[in-house]
Amino acid sequence: MTAARQARGAKARLSGRRAEVLAAAWLMLKGYRILGFRLPTPLGEIDLLAQRGAVLAVIEVKQRASLDDALDAVTFDQRARLRRAAAHIVQHRTALRNTTLRLDLIALAPGRWPRHLRDAWMEGQ
């Protein structure tokens, strides 16, 4: 791997982490409690796991040039992986079993406020 490619990868990872921290702060301002940050599961990583009341939100964070690009960046396969990872978390954390599970997106774009899309993809989409 070239040094330039390694530098681009490091820059992208740092940008992604910053986006996740911004998204977590945005959610906390909206009354969510962050339960997990870059949460690994055997079925994949969850960017943010947050709870507000009886809602357990699995949050995918995407930073792109536009908010629409961020929404489009999450593929059907990725959404299915997130649902499986979320089910795994609920199954293994008894305190979360009575929550309503939701798959959300926090879309970030330069010069724009973060956009929180609740239930960003309906079941099966």
Rank of each mutant, 00 (worst) to 15 (best):
M28C: 05
A25S: 12
L48W: 11
L35W: 00
A70W: 05
K62V: 00
A19M: 13
E60W: 00
G53L: 04
G44V: 03
A24N: 06
D68K: 05
I46G: 02
L67I: 10
S15H: 15
L39G: 00
L82V: 14
R81T: 13
L71Q: 11
V21L: 14
A54R: 13
S15V: 12
G44D: 02
D68S: 08
L49R: 11
G44W: 02
L14W: 07
R38F: 05
A73T: 08
V74C: 08
D47F: 01
A80G: 03
P40Y: 10
A23Q: 10
G44I: 04
L29P: 03
A65D: 07
S15G: 10
A80T: 11
G44N: 02
D47A: 09
R33H: 14
D77E: 15
A24H: 07
L49A: 12
A80E: 13
L56W: 01
A24C: 08
A23W: 03
K62T: 01
K30A: 07
G16F: 01
Q78W: 01
R83N: 06
P40D: 12
D77N: 14
E60Y: 00
G53E: 06
G53S: 10
L49M: 14
R64S: 09
A85W: 00
R83T: 15
A23P: 06
E45R: 07
L71N: 06
R38V: 05
A23H: 13
A73I: 05
L35A: 03
K30D: 07
A50S: 06
V58P: 00
G16P: 04
A70N: 12
L22Y: 08
A65C: 03
I46Q: 02
Y32A: 04
Q78N: 12
R33P: 04
A12E: 10
A25V: 08
A73C: 11
L67V: 11
R64H: 08
W26V: 10
A25L: 09
L82I: 14
R83G: 02
L29N: 08
V21H: 13
P40C: 06
A10K: 14
F76H: 15
I46V: 15
V58T: 15
K30Y: 04
R33I: 11
A65K: 11
D72F: 15
Q63R: 15
G36Y: 01
E20W: 02
A80R: 13
D68T: 09
Q51F: 03
L43H: 12
A24T: 09
R79H: 09
S15C: 09
L22A: 15
A10W: 06
Q63D: 11
V61E: 00
M28Y: 04
S66H: 06
L48P: 12
R79P: 14
M28D: 04
V21T: 14
K11N: 14
D77W: 14
F76L: 15
G44R: 02
M28E: 09
A65P: 04
G44T: 04
L56P: 02
F37G: 12
G36N: 01
A57D: 07
L49I: 09
K62P: 00
A24I: 03
D77A: 15
L14M: 08
L39C: 03
A25F: 10
A10R: 08
Q51N: 05
L29D: 10
L14P: 01
D72K: 15
D69C: 06
T75L: 10
L71D: 10
R13V: 13
D68I: 05
F37R: 15
R18K: 14
E45A: 06
